[in-house]
């Protein structure tokens, strides 16, 4: 364990902890755009600069390991000046269309501008201008809003193992894009959307459906597979408009394309809301008691008439392991047959 002092406060942290992590544990706020504790440190936004006693220049707290006896100052005149300059520089190359931006209210850049009370900007000049052209149904990329924090690139490579995007070009022209600036053609897991601190990456299905202040958040479990990822439904006007996941869940906030973007069925008029029983060649709505009774009596009837092996059971990958276990147990012990299988085998 190392003991360091941050802003006059002693903090004990394990070896390998960064200054930023140590400060967070102590409840000390350090602004940052490019840090995500789940990703490799990057050190690009330079907002998390802190002064370490004995070091000639400010260092990024997200990349500098906390060492024993270290004395850290998270704020001073020079550091605040640099942070403000950085935010101003970012805003000088940003559409600044918060009034109509999907991300308003949930945007780190907007928060920083508010925090530094940037009503005016000392800097102005050329702004990057790009044509939006992605044809995919899931991810809207507005690269003019990109701050090059590199989180999307890192999550794609480090977490998803896909590496569909990287930074191309140099200097002011640097841009995150797929190879040769082709259209995005990936798994569309949307991990990049989930880590983007600005409105550069947005889920297309949510466009125009409501921003942060308009929504009710409902924590639930993803129904798609046995993993049981924790998800948060964003509900606006009784409609699910977005799915997110928090970093402090068992799935660390990571989701796949189905969990993140496959939510439209919830609002579909074709969606089944009750069991259906086919009577006289037509499906009719039924209650669960009715439906389960119908299944039980028919299973009994078939077993008596034709024997247990006339019955087969097919289970689903959308069930948990426990549910699948119970299902095979039911087939073998209650029905009395080994005719049991699972959709994942096909």
């Amino acid at each position: 364990m190392n003991t360091l002092m941050i802003d006059g406060k002693y903090i004990e942290v394990p070896e390998g902890t960064t200054i930023l992590e140590a400060a967070r544990r102590a409840g000390i706020y350090i602004p940052t755009l490019c840090d995500d504790p789940r990703l490799e440190p990057y050190g690009a936004c330079r907002l998390c600069l802190v002064q370490v006693k004995g070091m000639p220049r400010p260092v990024t707290s997200c990349t500098t390991p906390a060492t024993d006896g270290m004395e850290v100052q998270t704020s001073n005149e020079q550091i605040e000046r640099i942070r403000k300059t950085i935010v101003e520089l970012l805003l000088s190359d940003h559409p600044n269309d918060c009034m109509v931006c999907e991300k308003a209210g949930d945007c780190t850049l907007q928060e920083l501008a508010y925090f530094y009370n940037l009503r005016e900007n000392r800097f102005w000049g050329e702004r990057r201008q790009y044509t939006r052209k992605d044809a995919n149904p899931f991810i809207e990329r507005d690269m003019e809003k990109c701050v090059l924090c590199g989180k999307c690139v890192r999550v794609c490579e480090e977490v998803q193992g896909v590496a569909a995007i990287d930074i191309a070009y140099r200097g002011f022209q640097a841009k995150v894009c797929p190879p040769f600036e082709r259209d995005l053609d990936c798994e569309f897991c949307g991990q990049c959307v989930s880590v983007c601190p600005t409105g550069a990456l947005i889920g297309k299905q949510s466009l125009g459906k409501g921003r942060q202040k308009d929504i009710k958040r409902v924590d639930t479990v993803c129904p798609y597979c046995g993993c049981g990822c924790n998800i948060t439904l964003h509900v606006s006007r009784n409609e699910v408009i977005r799915v997110t996941s928090e970093p402090d869940t068992l799935n660390e906030g990571w989701l796949c394309v189905k969990g993140r973007f496959g939510f439209r069925f919830v609002n579909s008029p074709d969606r089944l809301k009750t069991p259906l029983i086919r009577r006289n060649g037509r499906f009719e709505e039924a209650t669960w008691t009715e439906a389960l009774g119908y299944i039980a009596s028919n299973l009994k009837r078939i077993k008596k008439q034709y024997g247990a092996d006339a019955i087969a059971g097919l289970s689903s990958a959308r069930c948990t392991n426990e549910e699948n276990y119970l299902f095979q147990k039911f087939m073998r012990a209650v029905i009395g047959t080994n005719n049991v299988d699972h959709c994942a085998r096909y």
Binding site: D93, G125, G171, A174
Partner: peptide, 21 residues
């Protein structure tokens, strides 16, 4: 320098651009 900046960090990427402007 602004043309040769890699574009990773903000002060160099946008700062040198604004200096040049």
């Amino acid at each position: 320098t602004q043309a040769e900046s890699c574009g990773k960090c903000v002060p160099c990427r946008i700062g040198t651009k604004r200096l040049l402007e």
